[in-house]
Design a protein around this nucleic acid. Structure first.
Length: 601
RNA sequence: GCGCCUGUAGCUCAGCUGGAUAGAGCAACGGACUUCUAAUCCGUGGGUCGAGAGUUCGAAUCCCUCCAGGCGCACCA
């Protein structure tokens, strides 16, 4: 990977719920009260899973009340979708969990509890006890479709939740030094961060995206020096490039701009001073380029935070004073050390060098303190995996400042193996042979690039093959999903040509949706909010792409075997309702990924 | 040497925080377009979940020990 900088990361679309469904696909909504509403209604926002948990919870309490069960503490109730239809639709292991504390055989417990289930709305066809004590729930056929009401009602909000309860959270990502353009390694971090932010916003956090500009250190000086050397070279001088200088083409470009603008005037000045000015010029220009590249990649930050801010009014110095008062700082030799071992780090860390300069770490502590002072309850940093060793000291710092250990979470992003036609494509910032983010986006497109970066867990290596990513073929998963969306739009258009449109929920005879493939689609649609929440909780944005792939696969399969539009008006209406629900979920999920959902392909 | 991550089908990877017979894509083979988009679908084959021990009703998942690979172990950022 690249990185002299410590961080990598993200992209940004925002999770906004655009309001109206696109008109070409929208179904009409009549005002009549539906004839077909022969389904019980489910409370807003409750999934089948939540309903079953509630039923089980009540049943267990009832069993305790009647003395059939003795429990000290109420158990955590877990319900999961079954893999095998023989096991019903959902299953719970709660009887087995309870066995030890209730001192009863799990199957007996399951029997007791299931006898106490009160199901006024008749969701359940039956409950079976199986294996060592599983309770298998079979859902009554007509109940499934009622879950789709929420998709209609919530529209672009479907999938969102409120576990964040408006708490403020900051996601810091990319944070590359402005010493060169972003390359493919940064791109992965950019997408992970951006999508993570979208997901957190979807589950109710107030999310703030931030890029930390490392513009105070030696790297920046080297940048200025490098440009200055190229500048002199362009003006005819023979120059040697010392170790540590940047050699990319973009350095020459910047030098050339300066020659064009100022001629040879800089040759006269004090070299130190000129170097400083060159640093500023180059840093600004490169940062502007970075921002533009990110914008085109769909990543927009709320704030670019400059490291230099931290030194203003001696911010870093005051921070060190604070830590000293708390007793975490000691002097050894001429350096100041921070006792990070007090919080589990392997060794203490230097915060002020012998020469009196604060370390990068010192500034980073100040930065994180600054974050919390701005009112973020928790902070997520996205770093390149090669910086994992930095976590214990940063965590120690946060704790020393008086914040909880959980207040800082770090997502590590592994390196990207860039390939072209199966063979490695080199990249190295120093040598200048790297593939930039911009080149990748230009070559494969924003959608394919973003989607591909989320096809692995972020902490596992990712092979990114440029040739594959730009192929419009079945090897390219992003098209698979987008194609499903486009197909549905096409169906809706076709239906409209024939004078029909998706009915409103109350008017659709959703009871006609009885095929196993239809039930599967509904179940999968219902799972979406859980997937989003799981991705938020575990900080694993890749779950969305896997989910999308599942949903698109079910749809394609269904599509190939069944006609949505037929002579049967009621059935056509029901199926249109179903597929437009699928479309809503595809669109919402793709939007969270910052990937477009085309109407035709 | 110490620490973190990874090891699942020929390849690339999932596996919902401990559940029932471990999944998908690609690759291989065989099928489906006068039909709402074939960028699609259907079918077949493919596994000592790196190894070993342990925890329990139950382990790819948790504990321990090994093996292999990656990355860290700065008064760099």
């Amino acid at each position: 990977m690249i990185c002299a900088e410590r961080r990598q990361a993200g992209t940004g679309g925002r999770w906004q719920c655009p309001a109206a469904r696109s008109s070409s696909c929208a179904g009409g909504k009549g005002q009549r009260v539906g004839l077909a509403a022969n389904f019980f209604r489910i409370e807003e926002r409750s999934s089948m899973k939540q309903l079953l948990v509630a039923l089980l919870d009540k049943a267990i309490r009832a069993s305790v009340d009647t003395g059939e069960l003795t429990l000290a503490t109420p158990p955590p109730i877990e319900i999961e979708l079954t893999k095998d239809p023989l096991h019903g639709d959902y299953a719970s292991n709660v009887a087995m969990i309870l066995a030890a504390q209730a001192k009863k055989n799990p199957r007996d417990i399951a029997r007791i509890v299931s006898a106490r289930i009160d199901d006024p709305r008749r969701i359940l066809e039956k409950v079976e006890i199986a294996g060592p004590g599983f309770m298998n729930f079979f859902i009554r056929e007509g109940c499934w479709a009622s879950l789709l009401e929420q998709v209609e009602r919530q529209g672009q909000r479907y999938g969102a939740a409120d576990v964040g309860a408006g708490r403020r959270i900051q996601v810091e990502f990319v944070s590359a030094n402005p010493t060169g353009p972003l390359h493919i390694g940064h791109a992965r971090g950019a997408v992970v961060g951006d999508v993570m932010a979208n997901i957190l916003a979807a589950v109710g956090y107030r999310v703030f995206r931030e890029y930390y500009i490392n513009d105070a250190g030696n790297q920046m000086n080297n940048l200025g020096k490098s440009v200055f050397l190229r500048y002199r070279e362009l003006l005819g001088e023979q120059v040697e490039f010392p170790e540590g200088c940047y050699r990319g083409e973009y350095i020459k470009d910047l030098a050339a701009e300066l020659v064009d603008r100022d001629g040879k005037s800089h040759l006269q000045g004090d070299p130190e001073e000129v170097s400083r000015r060159f640093t500023e010029y180059a840093g600004d220009a490169i940062l502007a380029g970075i921002k533009e590249d990110l914008r085109q990649f769909g990543v927009v930050f709320d704030l670019y935070f400059s490291e230099r801010e931290l030194y203003r009014e001696d911010g870093v110095g005051r921070l060190l004073g604070e830590l000293q008062e708390k007793g975490f700082i000691y002097r050894e030799g001429d350096a100041l050390w921070f006792r990070t071992t007090a919080f589990g780090d392997d060794k203490d860390r230097v915060v002020v060098r012998q020469n009196g300069d604060p370390t990068y770490f010192a500034a980073d502590i100040a930065y994180h303190k600054n974050k919390f002072q701005r009112g973020f309850e928790s902070v997520i940093d996205i770093w390149g995996a090669d910086h994992h060793g930095y976590i214990p000291r940063m965590s120690a710092a946060v704790q020393a400042l008086g914040y909880g250990k959980e207040a800082l979470q770090v997502i590590l992003v592994q390196l990207v193996n860039l390939l072209r036609g199966g063979k490695p494509a080199a990249m190295s910032t120093r040598s200048g042979e790297f593939v930039t983010l911009r080149e990748v986006v230009d070559e494969v497109g924003k959608d394919a690039a973003r989607y591909n970066f989320l096809m692995r867990r972020s902490d596992s290596h990712l092979d990114f093959d440029l040739d594959v990513a730009k192929q419009q073929s079945n090897e390219n998963p992003v098209y698979y999903v987008q194609y499903a969306h486009a197909r549905i739009c096409s169906i809706v258009r076709m239906a409209a040509d024939r004078g029909c449109s998706a009915p409103a929920y109350g008017q659709a005879e959703l009871g006609l949706l009885r095929l196993p493939a239809e039930i599967d689609l509904i179940k999968t649609i219902t799972r979406f909010p859980e997937v989003v929440e799981g991705a938020a909780r575990s900080l694993e944005p890749h779950r969305l792409t896997f989910y999308l792939n599942d949903l698109a696969g079910l749809f394609h399969s269904y599509y190939n075997k069944n006609k949505v539009i037929s002579d049967d008006a009621a059935l056509t209406g029901a199926r249109l309702f179903l597929v437009t629900s699928v479309r809503t979920v595809l669109k919402n999920a793709l939007t969270m990924l910052g990937v477009s959902a085309p109407d035709k392909m």
